[in-house]
Design a protein around this nucleic acid. Structure first.
Lengths: 250, 250
DNA sequence: CTTACTCTGTTCGTTATCGCACATAATAAG
DNA sequence: CTTATTATGTGCGATAACGAACAGAGTAAG
């Protein structure tokens, strides 16, 4: 059970912009039904939202935090499977019916998220077809990200994977600044810390990033995208296609 | 559009055992509603059921064939994302609402499958909650397999991955005999053919498999499982948990 | 039977990544 | 200010997988 600090609860009922694209894409009617049950909770770095095999109760809609879905091997090694930010929600296994997963969800970048009882979300499905449809489309976007992670793990260098990881994280943040150590990135990518150090050094020499002790600044994003493997663009394009987050389509 | 040869169509309406565990797990009522619309089609080796980005029309329920979901990189390299046999269905993006995916579905082991118009399946969801629920649980099983593929690609040796691949394939076949060249396995795993040759040689020397020119026989499955990484067992256990394919639970 | 082709086996140099050891630098704690 | 701790940099040798080249063995086609 996450010990997220509850920041404001009833404030959410004022129905201000949620800052979570998934929620924003829902019709006003659905939003007004859900928001009274939402809690805005703090998501501190490193918090484990759910553990492998654990039955979940809540779904989380990140606003400005990033959550990694990662698998922990028997020997303790890790691999990031997918990453979720203000583009989606955590807790798909509640929606899909499994109630637990084999992976762990960890806060990778601190911030806030809206929290909702999974049962509340599910009970609205029957009332609002749009809600189920959007959730399922999001699940396909997640699947795409997982598939691409598998491909990237097989075929691409640490340098390319670091680029992909930076871009995916950047898209879920407000500025070009990540609070993140190389050690943590290494854990996410499932590689050695030294490998990340070397890759980051190369990116720095290319003028793409600046960094120091737990902070990374992307200074040349176009070049970062250019150095990246195709995996980022594939995930980005498919996510944009699947999720009607653009105001025009709302 | 797949040019599957249509073998028998109306025979399926006789409502004999489907040999697809997913269909078998459905209630008799749902089965009887769906079967009149099912076609039993031949699935020849190498047939592409759908291509990346292509809009699908049909879903497939394999009986004795195996279908790989794989991603094709810009440079032509491949990586298998997941594998589907008599345990599931192909065409989840129809169910999830995306209508196409970034991956390709290829027949990896020839056989037969039931084919159904995707729209027919979807239109039954509203009538039969069980059908949607089972489909979503299957989608979570697929997600588990994809996640584990990503992990395995990152952390495990070709030898271990070959074991995983053999076990996953074996579970979807009737006997211990695979019709499959090392070259094709290499394409699935996204590694060199020589790597598979060496790994297969080692497995042979361990007394686990026999093989010759496109045929593989698993002669010691317990040892195969023992040599395998944890990934197979994780996927197996989670699939069994998610999908009530055991008669007792029907 | 002969030829062509496909599948498998083997070698060899190259490369990316690993595992380990340790040095240096920046921040935090006392 | 000093000391501990954490983050990053660097330099090994070891290893797994790669790319390429080629040999042999089994099968199919003529």
């Amino acid at each position: 059970m996450p010990n997220s600090q509850l920041i404001k609860c009833s404030v959410a009922t004022n129905h201000h912009p949620s800052q979570n694209f998934f929620l924003d894409a829902l019709s006003d009617e659905i939003q007004q039904r859900l928001f009274p049950y939402m809690e805005l909770v703090s998501m501190p770095l490193g918090e484990i939202l759910y553990e492998s095999g654990e039955v979940m109760r809540y779904v989380y809609f990140p606003t400005d935090c990033i959550v990694s879905l990662l698998y922990v091997l028997e020997n303790g090694a890790q691999a990031e499977i997918a990453v979720v930010g203000h583009d989606g929600l955590i807790g798909m296994s509640l929606v899909l019916g499994g109630e637990s997963t084999t992976s762990r969800a960890v806060v990778q970048s601190a911030g806030y998220a809206y929290r909702l009882l999974g049962q509340r979300l599910i009970s609205e499905f029957s009332r609002h077809g749009q809600l189920l449809h959007l959730t399922l489309r999001y699940s396909q976007a997640l699947i795409t990200q997982m598939a691409q992670t598998a491909v990237c793990n097989r075929h691409h260098s640490i340098d390319q994977q670091l680029c992909r990881w930076l871009l995916l994280s950047l898209d879920r943040l407000k500025d070009n600044h990540l609070v993140m150590t190389q050690e943590l990135i290494a854990n996410m990518l499932g590689v050695r810390r030294e490998g990340v150090t070397e890759a980051a050094g190369r990116l720095h020499r290319e003028g793409v990033i600046d960094y120091s002790r737990g902070h990374i600044f992307v200074t040349n994003r176009p070049k970062l995208e250019q150095l990246c493997c195709e995996c980022y663009a594939v995930v980005k394009a498919e996510t944009d296609r699947l999720l009607p987050y653009h105001p025009s389509k709302k």
